[in-house]
Nucleic acid binder design. Sequence first.
DNA 1: AATGAATGAGAATTCATTCAT
DNA 2: CATGAATGAATTCTCATTCAT
Lengths: 190, 190, 190, 190
Amino acid sequence: MPKNTDRRTRILDAAEELFAVDGFDATPTARVADAADVPKGLVFYYFPRKIDLLLTLLQERLPTPSKASVADVVRRGDPAASLLAMHRRLGLEDHDSLVLRTIIFRESGTHPEVRDHLRKLRRSLVELTETALEQAAEWTVAKKLRRQAAETFVSVMLDHANARRAGGALPDVQGAAAVVALAIGAPTPA
Amino acid sequence: MPKNTDRRTRILDAAEELFAVDGFDATPTARVADAADVPKGLVFYYFPRKIDLLLTLLQERLPTPSKASVADVVRRGDPAASLLAMHRRLGLEDHDSLVLRTIIFRESGTHPEVRDHLRKLRRSLVELTETALEQAAEWTVAKKLRRQAAETFVSVMLDHANARRAGGALPDVQGAAAVVALAIGAPTPA
Amino acid sequence: MPKNTDRRTRILDAAEELFAVDGFDATPTARVADAADVPKGLVFYYFPRKIDLLLTLLQERLPTPSKASVADVVRRGDPAASLLAMHRRLGLEDHDSLVLRTIIFRESGTHPEVRDHLRKLRRSLVELTETALEQAAEWTVAKKLRRQAAETFVSVMLDHANARRAGGALPDVQGAAAVVALAIGAPTPA
Amino acid sequence: MPKNTDRRTRILDAAEELFAVDGFDATPTARVADAADVPKGLVFYYFPRKIDLLLTLLQERLPTPSKASVADVVRRGDPAASLLAMHRRLGLEDHDSLVLRTIIFRESGTHPEVRDHLRKLRRSLVELTETALEQAAEWTVAKKLRRQAAETFVSVMLDHANARRAGGALPDVQGAAAVVALAIGAPTPA
DNA sequence: AATGAATGAGAATTCATTCAT
DNA sequence: CATGAATGAATTCTCATTCAT
């Protein structure tokens, strides 16, 4: 509950946007201040070191996807559709998450403080996907296979988020959902 | 062609190493020169702009994986093993490729010149994987499914390369290979 | 006179301590406020400019050593012991004086406002020492020699105060007392 | 034997002057560059960190007073005159030494790297003065007394150097020389 | 009377790039 | 060809000081 939500928030908004587009290192704090329309000094008033901008962004704005938020998009009997819906939900429930994940990826190699967030994100995504698969499959799936399927799909989602910023061709998430569904024994789609 | 191959090469070697570890932006040309044990001026003599170092690295050192190089690792009847072998081969045939891919990922968002390489890499990887799947499967696989399966596996490989540098938990490539194999109809492994 | 003596005093206490340890220029007012546990604004409420902190410190806290305070430490017939006792008394009668002298030395070069205090301090110390020597010597000492002896000893005391903060080896005040005593004709110590 | 003596030297000259007058902390590197009439970047080319300017100054320019240099100013039989001559020689043989000592004093409290220099300076001055006293006195002086006398005079010299920059009244070096001479048994001057 | 958010003028430092030799 | 001295624009960060409340 930060006070002065107005300006502090505007700074974070600007940083989020710029970091995602240009990268953390390539974004001068001065540009953040400009974009937020606040004086340069104010950025450092709220975030003493530049890295604090990034850290705060991750701490305050990176939502840990909750199982609850996914449960209701699962379509029993249709794992492929369920995965797709989950993916859409994860990416859509707030525009932030994608942007922030984008940042995590790029910076985690260079900024060790950011790594934990990436680790956590992957782990929680895997768990989430496992749950989704579990609920969607009306038949029994071996635990190990389910985990492998979940990890596969998570890789695709992350690669997708990554490719989006990298500007390359986007991987085919829908295709991957179908592949994974088949792998765990879903009936061949008509 | 270039004379003094020695020193030019040493510069590229150093750049490759440093860019991979610290990132392109965070690596001063002076450090490249130091690491290569050449005078600072020589770096700019060979590579007038810093970005040329990166571009040259991609042009000269990023191998387009060849179908031929993969053909002989395919094990007919065992797509999972084939994919895994291919992945290993891709990663091993030269240590460089991984390092360079790492770079591509990080920089392609910020340096547009790098994007094409990423695009090309993904495309050729997908083709390669498709070929591998085609050769490995003794049964018929629908073209579309094969493509989707290939793309899925490529995502996992790229995510793997990416996660390695990001320092997070590595995705389970072996599991993904199994999942993809199942999806295209491989018999359940004993 | 000042109300809220409490907080104003705490600010001065903190400033005195920090200025002595880190130097005036290197001590941000914010640190003073922190150390004093008062809001930052209050420092400027009481001391509109930073330099006022220093000036106030000198005006309110730098005691002009009084002849009276020294008279009773003089041991007639033993100038060396008297000087030493005086030195001890000057340093002990309040911990502040040393700290503040330390500050004067460092800042007087840079902050002209501080110079006068240093001048005054030296003069009053010389007078004091002269008095001490006069009272301690049971024999006649030429006025000029007494003055020179006093100045010599004052130099040693100041150098001592200075060296203490500078961290160097401390000059031998006791030895100097002996030397000065001899110079004005004290009998060679047994 | 630094090359490009010209500009590097000019930078050191400027730094020496400014540091002595305004203090190290209060002198921006930009002012040094201006005074030396070189671009700002060149200062950091030669002296990567600001403190290196100071350290280099001490290492390259602070002469350790040599016994030889003093031997020939000693006047046998007249310790007072000898000390005075020594003092003059120390201060005059180059204007630098005084300036640099001035700097040492001010900064040694705040910059630990500078302390050693101060320690060394004091020690070598004491040794020098002892030698001077030994050579000047035609009579026997107890070793301990000689040491105390030397230390006393060194304190006065240092206090003198210090007072000069602090702007206060200068201590009477001549008087101190007389006092010290008397203390070690010199005949009362006519 | 008291405060803490706000500001902007520097400060040190970095570095790609140039260029005289 | 090769080089390392030189440059200055850009960047992060600091802090005394102001002022609305």
